Deep mutational scan, measured.
Amino acid sequence: DMPHRFKVHNYMSPTFCDHCGSLLWGLVKQGLKCEDCGMNVHHKCREKVANLCGI
């Protein structure tokens, strides 16, 4: 059981939050991507995600 390793990410195409399902808005640093499993989340959704990475 490992925690997610979220890192700020710049998305080049429209991407949706894997937690709430809404679009990650903006041009740069729109959200966070787990370096291990690739989960994408809003900055505000980070604390709502279970801290178990499903690598």
Rank of each mutant, 00 (worst) to 15 (best):
H9I: 13
Y11G: 02
S22R: 13
D1W: 02
H19V: 13
L52K: 14
I55N: 07
L27E: 03
H19G: 14
F16E: 04
L23I: 12
T15H: 15
P3N: 15
V28T: 09
D36P: 10
P3S: 15
G38K: 13
N40C: 10
F16I: 12
E35M: 14
V8Q: 05
G26W: 03
C34M: 00
V49Y: 08
M39R: 07
I55Y: 04
M12I: 13
C37G: 00
T15C: 07
L24S: 03
V28R: 07
M12W: 10
C45E: 04
K33N: 14
Y11E: 01
C53K: 13
V41P: 00
L23R: 02
E47Q: 10
D18Q: 12
C37E: 01
H43N: 08
H43E: 07
V28C: 05
H43G: 11
S22P: 05
P14N: 03
N10F: 05
S22A: 08
V41D: 00
K33S: 14
P14R: 04
P3Y: 15
V41L: 11
M39W: 13
K7E: 06
L52V: 11
V28D: 04
C53A: 13
D18R: 12
D36T: 06
S13F: 14
N51P: 05
L52P: 11
D1K: 15
F6Y: 06
F6W: 06
P14Y: 05
C53Y: 11
T15F: 07
I55D: 11
C17V: 01
G38H: 11
S22N: 07
V49W: 10
N10Q: 09
F6V: 04
Q30F: 02
R46V: 12
G38E: 14
W25E: 15
Q30I: 02
Y11L: 04
C34P: 01
H9Y: 10
G54Q: 08
C37S: 02
C17Q: 00
H19T: 13
P14D: 03
D18I: 10
K48P: 10
G38I: 06
W25K: 04
E47K: 08
N40V: 07
C17F: 00
C45T: 01
R5L: 15
N51T: 02
L32T: 10
E35S: 11
H4C: 04
N40Q: 05
V41F: 13
R5H: 15
S13N: 10
L52W: 15
S22W: 15
W25C: 02
C37W: 00
H19S: 12
G31P: 01
K29C: 10
S13E: 05
N51W: 02
E35I: 14
V28H: 08
H42P: 00
L24M: 13
D1M: 01
L24Y: 02
L32K: 09
C20N: 01
R46I: 10
M2H: 14
G38M: 13
R46E: 06
C20S: 01
N51R: 03
K7P: 02
K44N: 05
H4Y: 02
K7D: 04
S13Y: 12
D1G: 07
K33Q: 13
K7I: 15
L24K: 03
V49F: 06
C34E: 00
F16G: 07
V41S: 10
L52G: 13
V41Y: 07
D36E: 11
L52N: 11
H4P: 03
L52T: 13
S13G: 12
V49S: 15
P3H: 15
G21L: 11
D18E: 12
M12T: 05
C17P: 01
N51S: 15
C34S: 00
C34G: 01
Q30T: 01
D1Q: 02
F6G: 02
C34F: 00
E35P: 09
C17G: 00
L32R: 13
L23A: 05
G54Y: 09
G31H: 02
M12K: 06
L52Q: 08
L32G: 11
E35W: 12
G54S: 09
H4A: 02
C34N: 01
M2A: 03
G26P: 02
R46F: 10
D18G: 12
H4M: 04
C45F: 01
M39E: 14
N10G: 06
G21T: 13
K29N: 09
K29V: 07
V41R: 05
E35F: 11
L27Y: 05
D36F: 05
G26D: 03
V49L: 11
H4F: 02
V41C: 13
D1P: 03
G54W: 06
K7Q: 12
K44M: 05
C53N: 08
A50Q: 08
P3F: 15
K29Q: 10
L23H: 03
H9E: 12
H9P: 03
C17I: 00
P14A: 08
E35V: 12
E47A: 09
Y11F: 14
R46N: 07
C53E: 13
P3D: 14
C34I: 00
S13W: 09
Q30L: 01
G26Y: 01
D18F: 07
N51A: 05
C20T: 01
K33D: 11
H42Q: 06
S22D: 05
L32F: 08
K33M: 13
S13L: 08
C17L: 00
H19R: 11
K29T: 12
C37N: 01
M39D: 10
H4I: 02
F6E: 03
C34Y: 00
G54P: 14
H19W: 15
G31E: 01
D36M: 06
Q30E: 02
F6S: 05
H9S: 15
F6P: 04
M2W: 04
C45L: 00
C20M: 00
P14S: 03
F16L: 06
C17R: 00
W25A: 04
T15L: 04
L24Q: 12
W25L: 10
L27F: 14
K29D: 06
V28W: 05
D18P: 01
I55F: 08
K7T: 13
P3I: 15
K48H: 11
V49Q: 07
M39L: 10
R46P: 06
V8C: 04
H4V: 02
H19A: 12
L23M: 10
L27A: 04
E35G: 13
C37F: 00
V49C: 04
L27W: 07
F6A: 04
D1N: 13
G31N: 02
H9Q: 12
Y11P: 03
F16D: 06
K48F: 07
C45N: 00
H43R: 09
G21A: 13
V49H: 13
V8I: 11
Y11N: 03
H19E: 15
H9R: 10
K33A: 15
K29H: 12
L23D: 03
L32V: 14
C37Y: 00
G26H: 01
H9G: 12
F16M: 14
K33G: 13
K33L: 12
M12F: 15
A50E: 12
L27I: 06
Q30D: 03
K7Y: 07
V41M: 10
M39N: 08
R5M: 02
C53V: 09
L23F: 14
C20R: 01
P14Q: 03
C53H: 15
E47G: 11
R46A: 07
K7H: 05
H9A: 11
S22Q: 15
K33H: 13
G21Q: 13
N51I: 09
C37D: 06
G38A: 11
K33W: 12
G54L: 07
V41W: 09
E47S: 07
V28Q: 07
Y11C: 04
M2L: 09
L32M: 13
L32H: 14
K7R: 07
S13T: 07
L24W: 01
W25T: 04
P3E: 15
R5F: 14
C53M: 09
K44R: 13
L52M: 09
T15N: 09
C37A: 00
C20V: 00
L24I: 13
